[in-house]
Amino acid sequence: MKFKSALPTLALLLVVFMSSCNNDTDEDLTSDMSAVGKSDSSPSDIYAVNETYNIEPKIGSLTGVNLGIAGDFAILSKTGITDVYKSTITGDIGSSPITGAAILVRCTEVVGTIYTVDAAGPLPCSVTNATRLTTAIGDMQTAYTDAAGRTNPDFLNLGAGNIGGKTLTPGLYKWTSALNIPTDITISGSPTDVFIFQVAGTLKLSSTARMTLTGGVQAKNIFWVVSDAVTCGTTSHFEGNILGMTGINLQTEATINGRLLAQTAVTLQMNAVTQPQ
C-alpha cells in the first residue's frame, strides 16, 4: 500500500526532472545554433574574411625598364653619332667605346653635355669621362636584355606587323618579324602606364607619320626594343625610348620625344631629339 501511495509522487518528480533537462538542452542548442549562424552565415564576417585574404587585381602591373645611367642620356651609342647640321638635341649625348672623334655633332646643337672617352670629341664643349660612359653602355645593354626578355605578351603580332591607324593601350607587345607604321598611331593610357614593344626585325616609321600620346601617357614609360635597324622617315614624329640592337636612323627633320640608345650608331639629319623627363 505504501508503494502504491508513493507512485504519484515519483511520477510528478520524474516529469519535473525531464522538463528541466529538455529546457537546458534547448537553450544549449539555441546557443550553439546562434554561434554557428554568426560564424558561418553573417555577411559582415564573410566580408571581413575577404578583406583580409582576397588579393586585389593589379592594374597597370607591367613594370618599366630600368635604364640606369643610360637614362641620363638623350642619345647613347657604341660606334658613334653622325649628323647633318643642324640638329637640336635637348639632353646629354655620348658614345663608347669608340673615340670621341666619331661624335660628329657640334657644340651649338646640344643643350646638355657631350661625353666622350677621350679628348678627341667636339671642341670646346665635350667632356672626357670614359668611366661614366662605360657604366652607361653597360646599363643600356642590361635594359635591352630586360625589355627583350619580357614574356607573356598582351598583344602578339598585332596587325600582322602593320599598326598604322591603330590606338595602342598599355601592355607588352611582341612582333616576331618587322614592324611598319605607315600612318599615324595613338598611344593611350594614364601617366603611370607602361608600354613595351618587342620587335624581332626592323622598325620603320614612315615619312610624315606621327605618334600621338593621349590620356596623360608619358614618353619615358614607353620602350621600343628592336633587334634590327630603326628608321624614322622624313618629318615623322616618334615617342618613347628606343633600345636598338643595331642602328637608329632619323631621316631629314624627323623628331623624337624620347631617347636613342643604340648598340651601334645613331644617324641624324637636321632632327630634334628631346629627352623626356
Rank of each mutant, 00 (worst) to 15 (best):
P8E: 13
T9R: 07
T9F: 04
T9P: 02
A11E: 14
L12M: 06
M18F: 13
N23W: 15
N23R: 15
D24H: 08
D26W: 11
D26R: 14
D32R: 11
M33W: 05
A35W: 06
A35C: 03
V36G: 06
D40W: 12
D40P: 08
S42N: 12
S44L: 05
V49L: 13
N50K: 13
Y53M: 06
Y53P: 07
Y53F: 10
I55V: 15
G60N: 11
L62R: 02
L67Q: 06
G68Y: 07
G71Y: 02
D72F: 10
D72M: 14
A74Y: 07
L76C: 12
K78P: 03
T79C: 10
G80L: 07
I81F: 06
Y85N: 13
Y85W: 11
T88C: 11
S95F: 13
S95P: 13
I98Y: 09
G100M: 06
A102Y: 12
V110N: 02
I114R: 08
Y115F: 14
A120I: 10
G121E: 13
L123N: 07
C125S: 04
T128K: 11
R132C: 09
R132Q: 15
T134E: 08
T134Q: 07
T134F: 03
G138T: 12
D139P: 03
M140H: 08
T142D: 06
A148C: 02
P153N: 01
P153L: 00
L156E: 11
A160I: 09
I163T: 02
G165D: 14
T167D: 01
L168K: 00
T169N: 14
T169M: 11
P170M: 00
P170V: 00
G171M: 01
G171D: 04
G171R: 01
L172G: 01
L172V: 01
K174Q: 08
T176L: 08
I181M: 04
I181P: 02
T183I: 09
I185Y: 00
I187N: 00
I187G: 01
G189D: 00
D193M: 00
F195M: 00
F197R: 02
A200I: 13
T202M: 12
L205R: 14
S207I: 08
T208Q: 11
A209W: 10
A209D: 12
R210M: 10
T212V: 09
V217N: 00
Q218R: 14
N221W: 00
W224A: 03
V226H: 07
S227A: 15
S227T: 10
D228G: 07
V230Q: 08
V230A: 08
T231K: 11
T231Y: 11
C232A: 10
G233A: 02
T234I: 14
T235W: 08
S236Q: 08
S236K: 06
G240E: 00
I242S: 04
M245L: 06
M245P: 01
L250A: 12
L250F: 14
I256K: 02
I256H: 04
L261Y: 04
A262I: 14
T264E: 12
A265Y: 09
A265H: 05
N271F: 04
V273H: 07
V273N: 10
T274K: 12
P276R: 01
